[in-house]
Nucleic acid binder design. Sequence first.
DNA 1: ATTCGACACGAACGGCGTTTGTCAGGAGAC
DNA 2: GTCTCCTGACAAACGCCGTTCGTGTCGAAT
Lengths: 248, 248
Amino acid sequence: MSTRNPFEARDVTSRRGGPVKKPLSRDAIVTVALDLLTREGLEGMSLRKVAAALETGPASLYAYVDDLRELQTLVFDRALADVTIPREPLRDWRSRLASLLESYITILARSSGLAQLAMNTIAAGPNALRIIEALLCLLDEAGVDQSTAAWAADLLSLYATAIAAEQSHRKENGDPLGPLVRMLGSVSQPEFPRIHASREQLVSGQGLERFDWAIEVLLKGVLQTPRQSHDGSVSPVEKGSHRRARHA
Amino acid sequence: MSTRNPFEARDVTSRRGGPVKKPLSRDAIVTVALDLLTREGLEGMSLRKVAAALETGPASLYAYVDDLRELQTLVFDRALADVTIPREPLRDWRSRLASLLESYITILARSSGLAQLAMNTIAAGPNALRIIEALLCLLDEAGVDQSTAAWAADLLSLYATAIAAEQSHRKENGDPLGPLVRMLGSVSQPEFPRIHASREQLVSGQGLERFDWAIEVLLKGVLQTPRQSHDGSVSPVEKGSHRRARHA
DNA sequence: ATTCGACACGAACGGCGTTTGTCAGGAGAC
DNA sequence: GTCTCCTGACAAACGCCGTTCGTGTCGAAT
């Protein structure tokens, strides 16, 4: 596998063409693949199926992507293009941050295929960067120092991805709660007393309710937990230099 | 696929046996599969490979597991058997909780195969329940009400799983930081100024450092964010009843 | 002794990702 | 204009996968 940056578009000029079939392009491949992923899940996005949808053979795709993994990465970033970055200047950062994460989760939870892909793919494309940049801006606006914000952005996106996967998994099963509820329902009280007592709460809070609580938790925690300096203490001088850097 | 509880051991008496081959058993299958997963990743745990390691054919495994998915679920829970639940009564809950999560992350991050499996599998087996029960106990000891603890346990385990996956992914690549660093290193400053400024911090803090900070964040947040009751307020009466239930 | 149920497992089916090799078309050089 | 080279297009093939089907064997029950 090459070390070429997969997000730089190769200038490939399609040699195929004619009155009947459209020329292939990476854009078309990613578009079709995302559609298949959304409708049929990760297994529905095989190279064969993508190629068939484009009326060609799977080997043709290798002129545009190195392998399936690269296609998956491109598809994931393409999906993130739909995430809305809130930009109203009069709106408080907290609300905008919650909206950003909510949009992210909504996009990912749209289909279990996408959520599953997100759980296994490093988000490093232009759209992912757009989102991280927005997170960092919002955290800065919240008064979080740059160093802490870096880790907080990671924490928030990790959690958002995990929540999206959880929601999409529940959405996928006709029985929305599925095997987990069956397991919790059959838990023996002497063996697992607290689980037994909490079994309804463990699966409660679908959609926004649990998300809202969790964002509260994460933001409260982040705002009160600046990253420690190397000697383990948070010094007022460090805070001061943070403020100066901001106006540079 | 049946609705049988996969964690209840089927009483299967092996009909195969003899001086040369050991009788198959579910335990042996799961053990071999976990070993293969650890050494060769998720793709290394195919039914064919597991069967070959047991000197049989893949079809033989269907007497013991319904399908590959069930085997994966069993393997995941088996791996969680190694998670250490801290039980020293004189040790404070915070320290024990951090140790529990650290043990969980260590086990999962042991191999990228296991971490990947954890990202795609609902933890609902006996060992997973053991961990959730311990989390709930510790949160109770921290003074967190039952309702909030239910969600907090979920939040903590989601995050721990995601961190483990992140760590295992980095561990797997010889270049421990890999494509993400390359991407961050080539980010353009005018387009993504905050990412550019934070690019080193975004990937800093391997191992315990970032984990310790994140646990601080999550615990601070949880302790200050009880779940709202249905009418949106937290009432002292509700806290009272929580305390009474505790001594019941 | 006979029958039944279930483990054991090879063969086969349909599917996958990827590589190899051939063809055809376009660009560039002469 | 002709020739050569490069590259997109893509069929065929390879090796691998999960699962089903069918057959054989053995032990328990009658």
